[in-house]
Simulated assay, not measured.
Amino acid sequence: MAKEPSDSRAVRYLAEHGPSPREELPVQHLTTNVRTLIGTLNISGGPGGGGSTAGVAGGLTGIAYLREEHDLSTVVEAWLAVNEEQIEQLPPDSIRRRLRASVSHDKRDVVSDVLSAAGYEVDYADRGGRQTDPFECSLCGSSVPDIASHLQSCPER
């Protein structure tokens, strides 16, 4: 009788230990049907990746997790913890962009929320991007993040 993917030692390990460094799994070469249950979170170079991470203190450690069981925020927190020393060498905007690019589009906000909570904020003010300091409306005195949007609905206009 064929073994079920959920009977894999790697799946059982992750069910017991939670999201873990990929190299800690008891099985390194996963069968195709087991790979459908296990994801790996890491950043890399390539299109949109902004270059290789191999030169960053020997590379970064991928975190294996059970796709249907582990919450992505927990996976991102585990990735940050295990790669803490290495990612200190990378700019926060690179970490944010590359880690968001490693997950599906609908889960990118989860990555951003965890990174923000962990202190990996990006200041876009010096790049002509979004303003981080609020503006004070000269008409009503309100403190607003985007003066152009506010002026359209300002009560004193």
Results as ranks from 00 to 15, higher is better:
29 H>M: 09
29 H>T: 08
30 L>H: 01
31 T>I: 01
31 T>K: 06
33 N>W: 03
34 V>I: 03
34 V>Q: 01
34 V>T: 01
35 R>L: 08
35 R>V: 00
36 T>R: 10
36 T>Y: 06
38 I>C: 00
38 I>T: 00
38 I>K: 00
39 G>A: 02
40 T>Y: 07
40 T>E: 10
41 L>R: 07
42 N>E: 09
42 N>G: 10
42 N>D: 13
46 G>E: 14
47 P>T: 11
47 P>E: 14
48 G>N: 12
50 G>Y: 14
52 S>N: 00
53 T>L: 08
53 T>K: 05
53 T>P: 01
53 T>C: 06
55 G>H: 03
55 G>I: 02
56 V>A: 05
56 V>F: 07
56 V>D: 03
57 A>G: 12
58 G>S: 02
59 G>Y: 06
60 L>R: 05
62 G>L: 07
62 G>K: 02
63 I>G: 01
63 I>Q: 05
63 I>H: 04
63 I>D: 04
64 A>R: 05
65 Y>A: 02
65 Y>T: 03
65 Y>E: 03
66 L>V: 02
67 R>Y: 00
68 E>S: 13
69 E>G: 02
69 E>P: 02
71 D>P: 06
71 D>H: 07
72 L>M: 02
72 L>K: 02
73 S>R: 08
74 T>G: 06
76 V>I: 04
77 E>W: 08
80 L>Q: 01
80 L>K: 01
80 L>I: 06
81 A>E: 07
82 V>C: 04
82 V>H: 08
83 N>G: 05
85 E>G: 07
85 E>R: 15
86 Q>Y: 09
87 I>Y: 05
87 I>Q: 05
88 E>D: 13
89 Q>T: 03
89 Q>A: 09
89 Q>P: 00
89 Q>M: 08
90 L>C: 08
90 L>I: 15
90 L>F: 09
90 L>N: 03
91 P>H: 05
92 P>M: 09
93 D>S: 15
94 S>F: 15
95 I>S: 12
95 I>H: 12
96 R>Q: 08
96 R>S: 04
97 R>T: 15
97 R>F: 12
99 L>R: 12
99 L>V: 11
100 R>Y: 04
100 R>Q: 11
101 A>D: 12
102 S>C: 10
103 V>M: 01
104 S>G: 13
106 D>F: 10
106 D>H: 13
106 D>E: 13
107 K>E: 10
108 R>V: 07
108 R>L: 09
109 D>W: 03
109 D>E: 12
109 D>N: 12
109 D>F: 04
111 V>Q: 00
112 S>H: 07
115 L>N: 04
121 E>W: 14
121 E>L: 15
122 V>S: 12
123 D>T: 14
123 D>R: 14
128 G>N: 15
129 G>K: 11
130 R>V: 15
133 D>P: 05
133 D>I: 04
134 P>W: 07
134 P>Y: 08
136 E>G: 11
136 E>W: 08
137 C>W: 04
139 L>Q: 12
139 L>S: 14
140 C>N: 04
140 C>H: 07
141 G>I: 11
142 S>P: 08
142 S>A: 15
144 V>Q: 14
144 V>W: 13
145 P>T: 11
145 P>Q: 13
146 D>C: 09
146 D>T: 04
148 A>Q: 12
148 A>F: 09
149 S>H: 12
149 S>K: 15
